[in-house]
Design a protein around this nucleic acid. Structure first.
Lengths: 119, 119
DNA sequence: CGGGATCCGTTTTGATACTG
DNA sequence: CAGTATCAAAACGGATCCCG
């Protein structure tokens, strides 16, 4: 199961990590920063995520109040996801990661321990 | 195994997440922000981490050039870990997480979906 | 004695096929 | 289209052994 943070560690960093300290949640968060997304749309934007893992993480994030899930009684089914206010307040975290990642990519060729792959 | 990022995804956020997008690495990173630490010291600072997992993640981070490992041929054994320059450049990420976490904790009592635990 | 390697059982994560 | 069921892979924890 994807843990939904029911406990508040004393350390603030541990608190944050408990909520979004995993690969997929961070990428999902990023995907939702641009606004409302349908399930399939979100999936397309996150390479290599399976629908089960996406569902699991979205449910955990919903429980934690980060994500809002809206189900439409239609055929074909339609489920929309968006960030709550709390979820949107995480934006700076992804922001900083993006800046760092850009810089890292820029310098990657000068570092020996990395191997460039285009996928 | 703890994946050591050998590939560079196109998305900057994915790049960052690939390097430190896991619970333990983020907490290890935090532990090392204050300077050089011995293995046992680091372990004490991270609740509930097993020595095996700590070793695994430290090795992965070493391979990624984030962490520097120094072994001293002494008795009793002494192994020191510290951030590389690259590792230290990740500081803002932990910083932002800490700020967010503090704010979250402050507001936790007003939100219904969280349950306070002191551990 | 501190750091680490290894073996083993459990839990978590993930890929795939299937359903309404 | 979105979500569940089934099954395989791996991450994790703990105990134990090791080596200096």
């Amino acid at each position: 199961m994807i843990p939904t943070s029911k406990e508040l560690p004393l350390c603030p960093v541990a608190t944050t990590v408990g909520l979004i300290g995993n690969k997929w949640k961070l990428l999902i968060l990023q995907g939702l920063l641009t606004g409302v997304k349908r399930f399939g749309e979100l999936r397309k934007g996150i390479p290599d995520i399976s629908q089960k893992v996406l569902t699991q993480n979205l449910r955990a994030m919903e429980e934690d109040g980060i994500v809002i899930r809206k189900v439409f009684a239609e055929v074909p089914p339609r489920v929309e996801y968006q960030l709550s206010e709390l979820g949107d307040s995480l934006r700076p975290i992804i922001s900083v990661m993006e800046v760092w990642g850009l810089n890292y990519q820029k310098n990657a060729n000068t570092l020996e321990h990395t191997k460039q792959v285009t996928s």
